[in-house]
Design a protein around this nucleic acid. Structure first.
Lengths: 242, 242
DNA sequence: CTAAGTAAGTTGGACTGTACAACTAACTAT
DNA sequence: ATAGTTAGTTGTACAGTCCAACTTACTTAG
């Protein structure tokens, strides 16, 4: 009560010298490697006073008010620093803030999630890929990053059900069965071939290139994403999702 | 470059005495009044040094690190203060942060959106309802609140296409045509009666009460939301939304 | 007391896109 | 040649929306 009135008074008088939460940005970066959905994680530093020393964590850190124009730029910067990828699919996931999530005090993080193609994975520094098995990560993460990651996985699965998001996980050229495989990896269930092809081809999001993928059996048509490809939203989900 | 290195150093050494962004929470509160979608707005104070004096703005304010356990609690508090509603549908919308959105400095706001029933609108203080016409608000808002509101409207419309969200805008008892009307108001297009009824009734989210709504013509069955009603997700959208 | 009017609710046929399953096509390896 | 494998197609069943006409239950005007 008293606290609330105090803040109102401060707000009305225009003074800003009250305690501010810490502000961070974290990025959940997904890619498909070894036919599995994987997430990029870093190890926390071991220094004096560091929270969660040597734990695995999402890449991220404090917003730099001198350097970051806005939150999305901050997220893009962190992604670039870890992977070298400049223009991935990058979407805001949500924010997590509380008094207890960081032992250093009240803090709020703005979480983003990114999808990058497998062949764009030029890792720098300490970042490493970790597979998601059964919709979960084995390891425990620092802070509430486990919760954030779970939320990102859920959001991804949800959207894959009715959007073309997996296209952003594909290399420059890919076949329709390749794409279907990625859908199935993310959803962790098989999809119907003919319905899948009908849906994707009628979405006008990919175009054939003049080559075929050759292998030990029938060659498959190669496709690429069309330019300026926003994600496509379908009007139905695939199966009854349970 | 220098700035980034500096922040890294700070982070590694565990010191936290660098500039922090301002942290706020804003809430987009929707209700249906007079057969229109309306949003609750407040007027900014006129005091010395106040940004956007007397402009219309979303209800919100600084996070109070002494009082708010987490962001959702902060949003719920602000909603309660303005409307008296304790348990609305409350969903995180996203966050907006940049160097320039608030003249007082780098700031980030965590935006929520809430749906409350028309008959729960016991306004307190300076808050007032403003209609959304043609998917837009007439007035200009303070800060980037116009952008946040537009995003909330878009999110709402999107979700109404394939979820039961409008149920949270209804009074305790309502008829199916009432509910359909609310869908149509939000989507700003007519829906097909029989498909609408099939969809809603098979979703197992509402139950009939033992009364009918009587009027100048055929009485209509009254329904209420079932207990513990999470929003329902349908596997199709209504029309091809374009 | 009947007839007209209106909104609630139902019914049936057309259409769209997925589910399922069988099929053909194109290639490699034996 | 033949078997094996994956790419890609075809056809029937089914679910749910779209569209339009219909029946039902009430009020009000005459």
């Amino acid at each position: 009560m008293a606290g609330g009135a105090r803040v109102e008074a401060i707000e009305n008088s225009g003074h800003l010298d009250f305690p501010r939460p810490l502000t961070t940005v974290d990025v959940v970066i997904f890619a498909i490697l070894d036919d599995r959905l994987q997430v990029l994680l870093v190890r926390r530093p071991a220094g004096e006073g560091e929270p969660f020393p040597l734990s695995l964590a999402l890449p991220g850190g404090f917003v730099d008010v001198a350097k970051d124009r806005d939150l999305a730029a901050c997220a893009a910067r962190k992604l670039k620093e870890k992977t070298g990828v400049a223009s991935p699919y990058l979407e805001q996931l949500g924010s997590w803030g509380s008094a207890v999530r960081d032992p250093r005090g009240w803090s709020a993080t703005h979480a983003y999630f990114a999808l990058i193609p497998a062949d764009a994975g030029v890792l720098t520094g300490d970042a490493q890929w970790h597979p998601i098995v059964g919709g979960r990560l084995k390891a425990k993460l620092a802070f509430d990053h486990g919760e954030i990651l779970a939320s990102a996985i859920q959001r991804l699965r949800n959207k894959v059900e009715y959007t073309s998001l997996p296209a952003f996980l594909m290399p420059a050229e890919f076949t329709l069965p390749d794409l279907q495989r990625v859908y199935e990896i993310v959803l962790d269930r098989p999809l119907e071939k003919s319905a899948f092809r009908t849906r994707i081809l009628s979405a006008d999001m990919i175009e054939p290139v003049a080559r075929m993928r050759r292998g030990p059996n029938r060659p498959a048509q190669l496709y690429r994403l069309k330019k300026n490809s926003e994600p496509v939203y379908f009007v139905r989900t695939f199966n009854p999702p349970e």
